[in-house]
Measured scan of single mutants.
Amino acid sequence: AEEIWQQSVIGDYLARFKNDRVKALKAMEMTWNNMEKKEKLMWIKKAAED
C-alpha cells in the first residue's frame, strides 16, 4: 500500500524538492508515518484490488 501511495505522490514530492530524490523520499516516509489509519486504509484497499 505504501508503494502505491508513493508512486502516486512521488512527482509532487520531487517537484517540491527540486528533484532531490533523497529529501523527497525522506519527506514521503515521514508523511506516510504521520498519516491517519483511515487515510492509509484507502491505499491498502487500492493495493488489494491490484
Rank of each mutant, 00 (worst) to 15 (best):
L14N: 02
I44Q: 09
D12E: 13
I44R: 03
L14S: 02
I10R: 05
W32I: 01
A15H: 09
K45L: 14
Q6E: 03
A1P: 14
A47L: 06
K45G: 10
G11E: 10
Q6I: 14
Q7Y: 06
R16E: 08
A24Y: 01
S8V: 08
V9E: 02
R21N: 08
A24Q: 01
V22E: 14
N19K: 04
A1G: 11
K37I: 15
L41T: 05
S8L: 07
D50L: 15
L14M: 10
M42E: 07
M28W: 01
K26E: 11
E29S: 14
W5A: 00
E3Q: 11
W32L: 00
T31S: 09
K38C: 15
L25F: 14
F17H: 10
K45H: 11
E3K: 15
L41S: 07
T31H: 14
N34Q: 12
T31Q: 08
E29L: 09
K23W: 03
D50A: 11
A24V: 07
K46V: 07
E39W: 03
I10F: 09
E3W: 14
N19F: 11
F17N: 05
R21S: 09
A15Y: 08
K45R: 08
V9P: 00
D20W: 01
K37N: 12
F17S: 04
K40P: 00
T31P: 01
D12W: 06
K46C: 07
K38Y: 07
Q6L: 07
K26V: 10
V22C: 12
A15T: 13
E29H: 14
M35W: 01
A27I: 05
N19L: 03
F17K: 01
L25C: 11
K23Y: 05
E49K: 09
W5F: 05
A47C: 07
A47N: 07
T31D: 12
K26W: 07
G11W: 08
L25R: 06
T31Y: 14
L41W: 10
N34M: 12
W5H: 00
K37D: 14
L41P: 01
I4K: 15
Q6C: 11
Q6N: 07
K45W: 10
N34V: 07
N19A: 06
L41Y: 11
W43D: 02
Y13M: 06
I10T: 04
W43F: 03
M28K: 01
S8R: 04
N33K: 11
I44F: 10
A1Q: 03
W5M: 00
M28Y: 00
Q7M: 14
V22P: 05
K46A: 12
K40I: 04
D50R: 05
K46P: 04
E36F: 03
W43T: 02
L41E: 15
E36M: 03
M42Q: 15
V9I: 05
K26I: 10
I4Y: 14
K38L: 10
L25P: 00
V9Y: 04
Y13D: 00
V9Q: 03
M35G: 01
K46W: 06
E29Y: 08
K18E: 14
E29P: 00
L25N: 08
M28H: 00
K45I: 10
E2Q: 11
I4G: 04
W43C: 02
Q6G: 10
S8F: 14
G11P: 06
E36T: 13
D12G: 07
V22I: 12
N34S: 09
N19I: 01
D12I: 11
A1N: 03
A27W: 06
M28E: 00
A48D: 09
M42F: 15
N19Y: 12
T31V: 14
L14Q: 02
M35V: 02
M28D: 00
Q7L: 12
M42G: 11
G11S: 11
K38Q: 13
Y13Q: 01
G11N: 11
A24I: 03
Y13R: 01
I44Y: 13
A47S: 07
I4A: 10
K26P: 01
D50K: 13
N19G: 11
N34W: 04
A15N: 05
D50E: 14
T31R: 12
N19R: 04
D20N: 08
G11I: 14
M28S: 02
K37Y: 15
A48H: 08
N19Q: 11
M30L: 12
L14Y: 03
T31L: 04
E49M: 14
W5R: 01
I44W: 04
M35A: 02
L41G: 05
E29W: 09
A48P: 03
V22H: 08
D50Y: 12
D50V: 15
K38H: 11
A47E: 07
M28G: 00
K18Q: 15
D12C: 11
K46Y: 07
K26D: 08
E36Q: 03
N33C: 12
I10Y: 11
F17Y: 14
W32R: 00
K45A: 15
E39M: 06
M30Y: 10
K38W: 13
E39R: 03
K40E: 02
M35Y: 02
L14A: 02
L41V: 07
F17D: 02
I10M: 11
N34F: 07
E2L: 14
K18Y: 11
A1C: 06
W32F: 02
A47T: 05
N19V: 02
V22T: 13
W43K: 02
R16D: 05
V9T: 03
M42N: 09
K18A: 12
E3L: 11
A27P: 00
F17A: 06
N33Y: 10
W32Q: 00
W43A: 05
L25I: 13
K40G: 01
A27Y: 03
L41A: 14
D20K: 01
D20G: 01
A27S: 06
Q7D: 11
K37V: 13
E49N: 09
E49C: 06
A27T: 04
K38N: 14
I4P: 01
I44S: 07
I10H: 04
E3S: 13
K38D: 13
N34H: 09
N33F: 07
E3D: 09
D12Q: 06
V22Y: 11
E29I: 09
Q7K: 13
N33A: 12
D20F: 02
K23H: 06
A24W: 02
L41K: 08
D20S: 04
G11M: 15
G11L: 11
K26L: 09
E29K: 10
I10P: 01
K46N: 07
R16W: 03
K23C: 10
W5Y: 04
M42K: 14
D50T: 13
K23G: 13
E29T: 11
S8G: 06
I10W: 11
A47K: 03
T31K: 10
K18C: 15
I44C: 05
R16F: 11
A48R: 10
T31A: 15
W43S: 02
K46G: 04
A1T: 03
K37G: 10
K26F: 07
T31I: 09
I4C: 07
E39T: 04
V9H: 05
W32D: 00
S8C: 08
E49H: 08
A1M: 09
A48M: 15
L25A: 08
Q7P: 01
